[in-house]
């Protein structure tokens, strides 16, 4: 199959015009507002929007306590530094975790692509690789948590300064780590279905009695990329700030 299949040429014929007029037409139309997205994809997007607000509130409360405390804020660059081979590397663990998560996002994007090409072996393998990267990330986070807890960081105190550091850290990274864990489970379930060829034989999809299709790979991908997206914000606002 060629690399570029212009499926959107067909959309241009069957779908109403784009632009601002298209937005009004879509939203005021009968039956469905999101014409290019299936119900599953639209629902995942709306769920992700609500999740955005949850993480937004966490990051906002972190900003508020950090701005309003009179105690010095612990320097994340030093708190998360590691000695590797006798060299002192600031923030190195977090940098590695960032690269692991970005790698997983890349393999996920490839899995979605191969899914739509109906190449079930490559899709399943790439999803399993993504899940492995995700599990690695969670493992490194567990290491980071144990290290900090061992050094005396608690939600109510820490040895270096403002007590709010611990509560923000455990709340934000804990909630994100939970999301990654759920994502890994989600990936494994869908990868198994892809591997068995469920979507080639028209067996029911995930949480539905309708005929399953490879779009579920993209929907899983949306969730996974969102987890990576949240980490982009956590990395910038919590670890680098």
């Amino acid at each position: 199959m060629p690399d570029t299949t212009p499926t959107h040429a067909r959309d241009a014929i069957t779908l109403p015009a784009g632009g601002a007029g298209g937005v009004v037409a879509d939203w005021s139309s009968d039956q469905r507002a999101f014409k290019s997205a299936s119900w599953g994809k639209a629902m995942m997007w709306i769920f992700l929007l609500s999740d955005t607000f949850i993480f937004g509130c966490f990051l906002l409360s972190y900003m508020t306590v950090r701005m309003s405390t009179t105690e010095p804020w612990p320097n994340p660059s030093e708190v998360f530094a590691l000695e590797i081979g006798g060299t002192h590397l600031p923030l190195i663990l977090i940098a590695i975790m960032t690269f692991v998560l970005i790698s997983s996002s890349g393999t996920m994007a490839m899995a979605v692509n191969y899914g739509y090409r109906r190449d079930r072996v490559k899709t399943a393998v790439l999803m399993l690789v993504t899940a492995a990267f995700g599990a690695t990330f969670v493992g490194m986070q567990a290491f980071e948590w144990s290290k900090l807890i061992h050094e005396g960081v608690r939600p109510w105190e820490n040895p270096w300064g403002a007590a709010q550091f611990g509560s923000s850290f455990f709340m934000i990274t804990g909630f994100h780590g939970t999301h990654v864990t759920i994502g890994v489970i989600f990936l494994l379930i869908i990868a198994r279905k892809v591997w068995r060829g469920d979507f080639d034989q028209g067996k029911p999809g995930f949480f539905t009695s309708r005929k399953g299709c490879y779009e579920i790979v993209e929907i899983t991908g949306l969730y996974w990329h969102f987890v990576d997206l949240v980490w982009v914000f956590i990395f910038a606002l919590f670890y680098l700030w």
């Binding site: 499926t7 139309s29 290019s36």
Partner: peptide, 15 residues
Amino acid sequence: QAAAGTAAPAEGQQH
């Protein structure tokens, strides 16, 4: 046109 195009593209996103 919208009624005719309600089905999402069968092959989805291909890039």
